[in-house]
């Protein structure tokens, strides 16, 4: 079986531009077009959050699609399920806006759409080849890879740094 791709954060590369947030909101709009999306009701919402560790250290936070996702088990309406490609997704039609998922998500990445009274969260852009946030990131701080490829890249980078250090 093909390994599932996930969204990984390379936080050292994040510039804090919030482009991922806009792209995410647009990708989850009806029109898929920023100019029209801004006027839609309910207002499209981003599911990625550029938070700050300190004023100068931004970091994008998004749903981890946890194994044994607490939100999925906590949901009292059966609105959260795991797709075949391992994304944990919220079915807006079934969501009743009780916010139990918000109460149990340890990452704080489930949003509450007050206008629509629906919880929303990253769905890894089920209808796109690559999640919109990843496409939008100008510095590639967000990558869409398999765990294997992501850790391979990390190792390669570490090795490069090591060899540069030795060459000095």
């Amino acid at each position: 079986m093909d390994q599932i791709k996930e969204i990984f954060v390379r936080k050292d590369l994040c510039m804090g531009c919030h482009s991922c947030e806009l792209a995410c909101a647009v990708a989850h709009s009806a029109s898929k077009n920023i100019y029209e999306a801004m006027g839609e009701h309910p207002m499209p919402k981003s599911r990625v959050y550029v938070e700050t560790v300190s004023a100068s250290v931004p970091v994008p936070i998004l749903c981890r699609h946890c194994e044994d996702a607490p939100c999925m088990h906590a949901c009292i309406a059966g609105a959260i399920h795991r797709t075949a490609d391992q994304a944990v997704v919220t079915d807006a039609d079934k969501c009743i806006g009780c916010w139990t998922c918000v109460m149990v998500c340890p990452y704080g990445v489930i949003g509450r759409h007050l206008e629509a009274r629906k919880a929303y969260r990253c769905d890894r852009c089920q209808d796109r080849d690559q999640p919109a946030c990843v496409s939008a990131c100008p510095t590639k701080a967000l990558v869409y890879q398999t765990v294997t490829d992501f850790s391979k890249d990390l190792r390669r980078k570490a090795a490069e740094e090591l060899s540069r250090g030795e060459g000095r």
């Binding site: 607490p70 916010w99 998922c101 918000v102 109460m103 149990v104 998500c105 340890p106 990452y107 704080g108 489930i110 509450r112």
Partner: peptide, 10 residues
């Protein structure tokens, strides 16, 4: 406003 409630639970 119950933003980040899950984080506090954690």
């Amino acid at each position: 406003d119950i933003t980040h409630a899950g984080l506090y639970r954690y």
